[in-house]
Simulated assay, not measured.
Amino acid sequence: MSTEDLAAAIDDLPLVDHHVHGALASAVDRPTLELLLTESDRPVPAWMTQFDSQLGFAIRRWCAPVLDLPPHVDAADYVARREELGAHEIARRLLAASGIEHYLVETGYRGEEILSPTEMASASGVPADEVVRLEAVLEDLAREGVGAAELSSRFPEVLAERTERAVGLKSIVAYRYGFDFDPRRPSPAEVVAAARSWLRSGTTRVADPALLRFLLWSGLDRGLPLQLHAGYGDPDIELHRCDPLLLTRFIKLVEPFGVDLLLLHCYPFHRNAGYLAQAFPHVYFDVGLGVNHSGVRSSAVVAESLELAPFAKILFSSDAWGPPELHHLGALLWRRGMRKALSEWVDAGEWSASDAIRVARMIGRDNARRVYRLAAR
């Protein structure tokens, strides 16, 4: 079996995107599009464009042909073509081109602007299941007027209802506080006191560490795989507090519960995540968000993700939100990174081509199907 066979197998591999959000539900203008091509939440300065970035160059190179444009097309011509095709056709083309066979869609962020799991399935022609964000469920409860005294009993009930058909849970504790939290389950008194203070504050945004810990442990009680954003993200985080190594004590406390923890993205701490995935049987990781935003350099990120963790502990994700270019590129750049790394090792005689194909299948689809029990669905 040759490296050409390996490349073909990776290119043709149907992927499970285990952490993704919906594509845009409606058209956006160029300024809005550019804001969606960066993790910054600040306006793009007038003297620059987000198309002059690794992600912007990758879009002009790899997404342009899917929209019937030449590679490296000028950004203005690319945007004009997007406007001509419309949001539905752009999503249809780019989702189909990604080669994804199953989406696990996290629905807790600006859901009114993007396609729901049902709509993603319709647009792509492949299954889409839901991953429920813990913080969003609690914030919905606050809007409904739940009292502090009843919150600790009401939240697990509502979570069970909301996740009846879900395949996993997600927490953004990294955004709302950081990973340097007390890893222990909070006491009922702590939860009530924190809830009382939060509900009196007038904000529905939950950031109290006791409440965030309550959400995590309630999620663990639910028994579904739990995703945790780690590493790189928008300026709402303090990146030095999002190193997954800070979760080590929490990971140890979780281990007896038999619940899998999925560390998402992890860049630039992906080597640290690889250590955790090697050390603890219930820890997995991916490099999703870092792949899209590193563009041509993403091959190095993908190769680094293969250094330490057993291959049964690594998953593929795009973490795409909004522009379907991100859904397409997340898959394309990951495939390219895997082709480059594995072909080099096969050519050097370090790996067999058959083993390389088997590993690509594990990471690209089989591990996710096992962790989220998709084979039984």
Rank of each mutant, 00 (worst) to 15 (best):
N272Q: 13
E135Q: 03
L37Q: 01
A148R: 12
A166Q: 12
E101N: 13
C266W: 00
R82N: 06
I10C: 02
E112I: 01
E101W: 11
L69F: 05
A8D: 15
F311S: 05
K313P: 14
G99D: 07
E101S: 15
G290F: 05
A320R: 00
A96K: 14
A8H: 03
L228G: 06
M120W: 11
N367R: 05
F280W: 01
C242N: 10
S40V: 07
S2E: 11
L94D: 03
E34V: 03
G219K: 12
G274V: 03
G219S: 10
I100C: 15
L69K: 09
G258R: 09
A75S: 13
V167E: 00
L134T: 10
R92Y: 07
W62L: 08
P310H: 13
W217P: 04
P268S: 10
R222V: 01
E106V: 09
L55E: 01
H328L: 08
H18F: 06
H19S: 06
A353S: 09
V302F: 00
V28E: 07
W345Q: 08
S53I: 03
S354I: 11
E350T: 12
S201K: 05
I172S: 04
S201M: 12
D366H: 11
G330W: 00
V28L: 09
A368W: 04
L262W: 04
F316N: 02
A320K: 00
I172C: 15
P156R: 09
P188R: 04
G219R: 11
G219F: 13
V137Q: 03
E344D: 10
G99I: 05
P256K: 09
R176D: 05
L138K: 03
A279H: 15
S317W: 02
V359S: 06
R297S: 06
F250D: 02
F311C: 08
G125E: 14
A331W: 00
D243I: 03
E4S: 15
S197P: 07
G223H: 04
L141M: 09
D12M: 05
D355M: 13
D208L: 04
V167C: 08
E144L: 10
G349N: 12
G125Q: 07
G337I: 00
P65K: 06
D129P: 14
R81D: 09
R61D: 02
T107R: 05
V283I: 05
R93A: 04
T32M: 09
P256D: 12
T38M: 02
L55Q: 00
